[in-house]
């Protein structure tokens, strides 16, 4: 296990405001572990996730990827190569097929696979999406299937870090279990760092480390 992502006194205030919603946060994230970030609605969980995934920039402090500051890495490159993000509302290209979503993500990341389609089919199969479903447009897939496609897309470029925002929020219990098993397997068998923002106790149950955001501060609950 190695530390792959660190927060070093990170603070964040929304544009045009002076009050920090995230205050002096420090934490290390290691490979092979599942992390969950919990907290009340509006506590800043999704904001923290956007900072960790390079979608936004901290107003203060540093985010380190390995030993390099995220400020010194091109954020587009970071998103396309180092981190995979699973959004709460999936954020898939709805007029494209599941397969096209995966292949496009691989192309953006300049994945070395020669046969991207075959790789994408295999990846989707691993996540529980068969070939027929893979060739359907996103809008014709169920919520659970879309969530799986979103996870597959996040993994398509083989990132060391996977960040997920309420990944099971819209799913039934059975599908939720499936998804959580996938996350646990990705961490333990593939040595990835999994960071999940959630309200769900079922999700928290599979976590190795639980962080709580309260009053803008990040505290570890168990390890």
């Amino acid at each position: 296990m190695t530390t792959i992502l660190s927060l070093d006194n990170v603070s964040y205030a929304y544009e045009g405001t002076t009050k920090n919603v995230l205050q002096n946060m420090s934490a290390d994230f290691e490979t092979g572990l599942v992390y969950t970030i919990i907290g009340k609605s509006g506590a800043g969980k999704t904001t923290l996730l956007s900072l960790l995934s390079g979608l936004d920039v901290a107003t203060d402090g540093r985010i380190l990827v390995g030993k390099a500051s995220l400020k010194k890495i091109n954020r587009d490159t970071y998103r396309s190569r180092h981190v995979g993000v699973v959004f709460q509302s999936y954020n898939l290209l709805t007029n494209a097929t599941a397969l096209q979503n995966i292949v496009l993500s691989m192309s953006i990341s300049h994945c070395p696979q020669k046969n991207k389609k075959a790789y994408a089919y295999a990846l989707l199969k691993k996540i529980g999406i068969d070939r027929e479903t893979a060739d359907r447009k996103i809008l014709k897939l169920s919520g659970g299937e879309q969530q799986r496609v979103a996870i597959a897309r996040a993994l398509a470029h083989n990132p060391a870090i996977l960040i997920a925002d309420e990944p099971t929020g819209n799913l039934d219990k059975e599908t939720e279990d499936d998804i959580l098993n996938i996350f646990a397997r990705l961490a333990r068998e593939e040595d990835r760092c999994i960071i999940i923002v959630t309200h769900s106790k079922r999700v928290t149950a599979i976590a190795d480390v639980v962080y709580r955001i309260q009053d803008g501060c990040l505290t570890a609950e168990n390890g």
Binding site: L55, D76, T77, Y78, R79, S80, R81, V85, F87, N91, L92, L93, L104, S105, I108, S109, R153
Partner: peptide, 9 residues
């Protein structure tokens, strides 16, 4: 937004 979130420049 999706393409940019995926890292497309």
């Amino acid at each position: 937004g999706v393409l940019r979130a995926m890292g497309m420049k």
